[in-house]
């Protein structure tokens, strides 16, 4: 379909962009790569009066190492993020999740800041933003402010951004050594939105037996905003990974007891018990499994063609188990 009419400006600087937004009122929209916005316009779900195109502003591009965090320019494309040696070295979870966004052609155009500003809870990046405690640097004519990810996502497609405001960069804290990461996404077809996704970061200690010291878990599409699975994070702390006392017959070796996916063989609907009673005994597999059982606590997952809340809660538990296991293995160098 053809979008409704709008005006278009392409400012030459961030300052001009902020001024343009300021003068344009509430119906103005920031256009960057357009990969979320243009489909909305074409389907006539949005009627902006003017698009302020910031897609070419060098000030909003680039990825910088700021010591304690990486500063990702809001208009850096997904493709640039995925290829960035800095992101891969310092914040691998961001690269892992971004590589699953849509498809290559969309990643060439779509931008990191644009995807986050769109705030679709089914998008892959919001869950990573809350899991890693990213911060949003936001500019307007009245100055600059910084908003934490947990305060940024307000509701379905709604953020803390006020009219006239624009994200300039996103700060991603570096987590340091000993962490492993994984983004586990369940979707119906290759480039479809996540039915449910789980972003996991796990810090493993090898002092006194391998165990999880700290975990961050973010959930995609389990509510109107991205969700931080704090109950899982608390429950998984201290979980042993290769204790000799594994009572559930899982082989040990240097890995986290093999691959969770193959152990569990649990595609949804195989009658394996939709996350009813906690699986496994007190062994390591049981510890991750039991923590993962809490993944859907306090969530309000949506209903759509691909599943209802019960199915999504089941997915959250299964995918959290997979994500934690894979992240822990990667922390151990596996």
């Amino acid at each position: 379909m053809i979008p409704a009419s709008f005006d278009y400006v392409r400012p030459a600087s961030l300052e001009e962009a902020v001024a343009a937004l300021d003068g344009a009122g509430e119906e103005a929209k920031v256009l960057s790569g357009g990969q979320s916005l243009l489909p909305l316009l074409r389907m006539r779900l949005s009627y902006p009066s003017v698009l302020v195109d910031v897609g070419r502003l060098e000030e909003l591009r680039g990825i910088r190492d700021e010591g304690g965090h990486l500063a990702i320019g809001a208009a850096a494309t997904h493709d640039e993020v995925v290829r960035s040696p800095l992101v891969n070295a310092e914040c691998p979870l961001v690269a892992l999740a971004t590589a699953t966004v849509a498809d290559p052609a969309v990643r060439h155009r779509g931008t990191f800041g644009g995807s986050l500003a769109h705030a679709d809870p089914a998008g892959d990046l919001p869950a990573v933003a809350v899991a890693l405690d990213m911060e949003f640097v936001i500019r307007s004519s009245s100055g600059e402010r910084i908003v934490a990810a947990r305060d940024f996502f307000v509701d379905y497609l709604e953020t803390a951004l006020a009219p006239g405001e624009i994200i300039t960069e996103i700060r991603v804290p570096k987590l340091g050594d000993g962490w492993g990461f994984h983004y586990e996404k369940f979707h119906r077809t290759a480039q479809a939105w996540a039915t449910v996704g789980v972003a996991a970061a796990v810090r493993v200690s090898t002092q006194g037996g391998r165990h999880i010291e700290e975990a961050r878990v973010g959930l995609t599409n389990m509510g109107s905003t991205p969700v931080r699975a704090t109950e899982v994070e608390a429950a998984v702390r201290g979980a042993e990974l290769n204790g000799q006392a594994g009572t559930n017959g899982s082989g040990g070796g240097g890995s986290v007891n093999g691959h969770p996916r193959s152990q569990e063989g649990a595609a949804p609907g195989n009658g394996n018990g939709a996350g009813s009673a906690p699986h496994g005994g007190p062994g390591p597999r049981g510890a991750l499994r039991q923590a993962s059982e809490l993944a859907a606590e306090g969530t309000s997952p949506p209903t759509d063609l691909h599943g209802g809340p019960g199915y999504r809660r089941h997915l959250a538990r299964v995918l959290t188990y997979r994500a934690l296991g894979t992240a822990a293995r990667s922390a151990l160098g596996g």
Partner: peptide, 18 residues
Amino acid sequence: TVMLEGRSVKSCSVLAVQ
């Protein structure tokens, strides 16, 4: 799909002015 500045894009999701 076409090439824009040497990389693939979906031309139904790009504005001509861009």
